[in-house]
Design a protein around this nucleic acid. Structure first.
Length: 752
DNA sequence: CCGGAAAGGGTTTTT
DNA sequence: CCCTTTCCGG
């Protein structure tokens, strides 16, 4: 049972110290690629081998995929030990179900995602009579989410509300909570908020769980929010054997309530803690580490920290300039194809990252066009399709008859002649009687205001759901099949003439397969478990890392992963950094960290791409290279512009240009000229520095106007005479300029 | 009172 | 460009 060589032999001194650290708080500051996952896993195995019982260990990871990987690795290192590894949200859900009675909840609660939440918020907003103020449910819901993350109750929030928006949110927060509880539902934030509150107010429960989880390990601690921190803290009072691992430079979820201060204050929060820094990088080449380090060093609110590696220098980081977004997608796919053809890499060695999901579209067609296998890593996408959401809503309503959102989603899908007016009446009746909507449907005969088809529709719906509910103990996949049959959903799709419905039919069939697989893995799991797993799945949970394909994902999803070759797309002002972060120092710094995270995923080759123009929601816009590109070191970075190497070959850009010039003829009387994309006249293939921002107006550009003075470009659309430029002047507000003869001068990029 | 067609509005990142 | 809301015919 003593330390075996296999756990420690291949570790550095620092890593070994982290693995073998005994009792007491431990902070591991682990730079990118420093082997932190390995350290946590080994530490868990080491604890087990030193006699700690598996049931006394709790490990928190950022995704369910990471959790199951860690579980498996630990079991290999210390066979027979089943350690509790999960995400914060899964932990919360499990605790709430386990202690449901003690905490006064029904353990069959439904977990509402953001869409469900917004529907409920909308209802609460309308009921509060404040819906005429034009605050969107999304915005109000976001504010409520933030409040819960800070553990503010509705009365507390109302007390601290200062402006009008917050007052409205405070009102709606009350109503929203009431509706949630009535629906026997928890939103994502509840899964943290309620356990955190329970631990704070219920000392008996707190002490019990603290003693149960004597050893707590947390990965990605830099992205912990207040509610999560409270949970951690309350579980580490009597047994402060808390080990947290993180890297402040990789904190990218501030917008979701994460607070970088939590990791920075660890040493103060947990007295007698030990801190171990892992600065050695084992993942990337020197070129990549150097470029990423120089970039992140531009963050002012940062404790300076050096990342070092003994790896070879490697190829320079390459910045590639494309004419437009289509060229970029195609160019990257072709480069990957070439690298595979030459035998240098496999498809699965490649990953493509981007700031926003919308950019995957053009990539998708480029992949299809060139026959390159790829996976867009977005785990929930399949379950988010309308038809699957519908079927899942039936299941949710079966598992939890109080679930109002699901009831309203499926009660008339397929059509049963139940319209909005009838449903309003039904909701009124349910509220009066203080019963759920499904129960109210069962008493539709008593609701005299509802007439006609709606009466039989509601009655039949209720009867059908009652019959199904009697079969709730069926294995999940059998229940899905039964729902498809009895609800008429399958028949609706099968009998449809709409071509798309054939695909939808196949999709809901896939849902049966998914449920079957879920049950095959562990046949003690129920439909509620199935639904929970789907709702709490993260994007990377659906990622197949074994298959030989190119992986495409957002920068956020890339956290914690590594690939031999990485392409980061659209490194442009407005996208990375995203325009919504413009003008706020701390948010620009988070965007820079996001860029840093993407870069440090690369092991051997790193490509940062940008385009001169890009189509965005049907509009073609100028793009200026991201300021981040200009922050990269001059040495070790190579600038490539394929358009200069090209002679007569026609590209997508040329085709677009032809279209643009013929379109421009129609505006000849307005004085418009065909748009010619900026081109460097450099005939040689010498590396060049990306275009300076004086090539055109773009979002984020600082301009000088003759009359209004200095201003910041907030929007650009169209070109030639149809161009519209929106500029915000500090003294004059926002103004829109039309055409291309505006009397202003580009001064530079807006500096924070 | 219901369901389909047309117009209008809004778009980061995710558990 | 896509989804939601609104409007109108049956």
């Amino acid at each position: 049972m003593s330390d075996s060589n296999d756990l420690l032999a291949d570790l550095t001194d620092d890593q070994r110290a982290a693995v073998t650290h005994g009792e007491g708080p431990l902070l591991i500051l682990a730079g990118a690629g420093s082997g932190k996952t390995r350290v946590i896993t080994r530490r868990v195995a080491h604890l087990l081998r030193s006699g700690v019982r598996a049931s006394n260990i709790l490990a928190i990871t950022f995704t369910n995929k990471a959790a199951s990987e860690m579980k498996n690795r630990v079991e290999k290192l210390a066979p027979g030990n089943r350690v509790w590894v999960s995400t914060f949200h899964s932990l919360g859900a499990r605790l709430l179900r386990q202690y449901a009675e003690r905490l006064g909840f029904d353990r069959n609660f439904t977990i509402y995602d953001v869409d469900d939440r917004n529907k409920l918020v909308k209802d609460a907003l309308e009921a509060s009579g404040m819906d005429n103020v034009k605050f969107s449910p999304e915005r109000v819901g976001g504010a409520i989410s933030k409040a819960k993350n800070q553990l503010l109750t509705p009365p507390q929030y109302e007390r601290t509300a200062t402006d009008f928006f917050q007052q409205v949110v405070g009102k709606v927060y009350h109503g929203y909570e009431k509706r949630l509880r009535k629906a026997n539902a928890m939103d994502f934030d509840d899964l943290l908020y309620l356990p955190a509150m329970a631990l704070k107010t219920n000392e008996e429960l707190r002490a019990e769980l603290d003693a149960r989880f004597k050893y707590v390990l947390i990965d990605e601690y830099q992205d912990t929010n207040s509610a999560q921190y409270q949970i951690v803290k309350q579980l580490s009072l009597n047994y402060p054997n808390l080990c947290v691992v993180g890297d402040p430079d990789q904190s990218i979820y501030k917008w979701r309530g994460s607070d970088i201060k939590i990791i920075l204050d660890f040493e103060r929060d947990f007295p007698d803690s030990r801190t171990i820094t892992l600065a050695q990088n084992y993942r990337s080449t020197k070129s990549i580490i150097h470029a990423a380090s120089v970039l992140i060093d531009h963050n002012k609110q940062r404790k300076k920290k050096d990342l070092v590696t003994d790896n070879p220098q490697g190829d320079p980081v390459r910045v590639i300039t494309f004419d437009n977004g289509l060229d970029e997608a195609e160019g990257v796919v072709l480069r990957i194809k070439e690298a595979v053809k030459s035998g240098k890499f496999k498809y699965r060695d490649h990953a493509i990252f981007m700031r926003i999901n919308a950019l995957t579209r053009s990539l998708e067609s480029a992949f299809v066009k060139h026959g390159v296998k790829f996976q867009i890593v977005k785990g929930l996408a399949f379950f988010e399709r309308k038809e699957n959401r519908d079927v899942l809503a039936y299941l949710r309503l079966l598992a939890n008859p109080q679930d109002t959102v699901s009831f309203l989603r499926v009660v008339n899908e397929p059509g049963r002649g139940i319209g909005k007016v009838s449903l309003d009446k039904l909701q009124g009746f349910a509220a009066d009687q203080e019963i759920g909507l499904l129960a109210a449907a069962g008493q539709v005969a008593k609701i005299t205001e509802i007439r006609g088809k709606a009466v039989s529709g509601l009655r039949d719906f209720h009867r059908m759901m009652s019959d199904l509910r009697a079969r709730l103990d069926l294995p999940p996949h059998d229940l899905v099949r039964l729902v498809l049959e009895k609800s008429g959903y399958e028949a609706m799709l099968r009998d449809s003439t709409d071509e798309d419905d054939a695909e939808r039919l196949a999709n809901v069939g896939e849902l049966v397969t998914a449920a079957k697989q879920f049950w095959d893995e562990d046949n003690t799991r129920t439909i509620t478990d199935f639904l929970e797993q789907i709702t709490l799945a993260s994007d990377v949970d659906g990622w197949d890392e074994q298959a030989d394909h190119v992986s495409v994902m957002t920068l956020h999803a890339s956290k914690g992963l590594e690939f031999p070759v990485v392409y980061v797309l659209a490194v442009e002002e407005g996208l990375l950094p995203h325009e919504r972060s413009m003008g706020r120092d701390d948010e620009i710094e988070e965007e820079r960290r996001l860029c840093f995270v993407g870069m440090t995923r690369a092991m051997k080759e790193l490509y940062m791409c940008h385009a001169r123009m890009r189509e965005f929601r049907g509009q073609l816009n100028y793009c200026i290279p991201s300021g981040f590109l200009q922050e990269l070191p001059r040495g070790g970075v190579e600038f490539i512009d394929p358009s200069m190497a090209r002679n007569a070959a026609r590209t997508a850009a040329d085709e677009w240009r032809l279209k643009a010039s013929s379109a421009a003829k129609d505006w000849a009387d307005t004085g418009a000229r065909p748009f010619i994309p900026p081109r460097k006249p450099n005939p040689e293939l010498k590396p060049t520095i990306p275009d300076a921002p004086d090539t055109g107006l773009a979002v984020g550009v600082l301009v000088q106007h003759e009359e209004f003075g200095l201003g910041n470009v907030t929007d650009v659309s169209g070109y030639g005479a149809l161009r519209r430029v929106k500029i915000r002047f500090p003294a004059h507000g926002e103004k829109v300029f039309a055409g291309d003869k505006i009397r202003l001068k580009v001064v530079g990029r807006k500096k924070a």
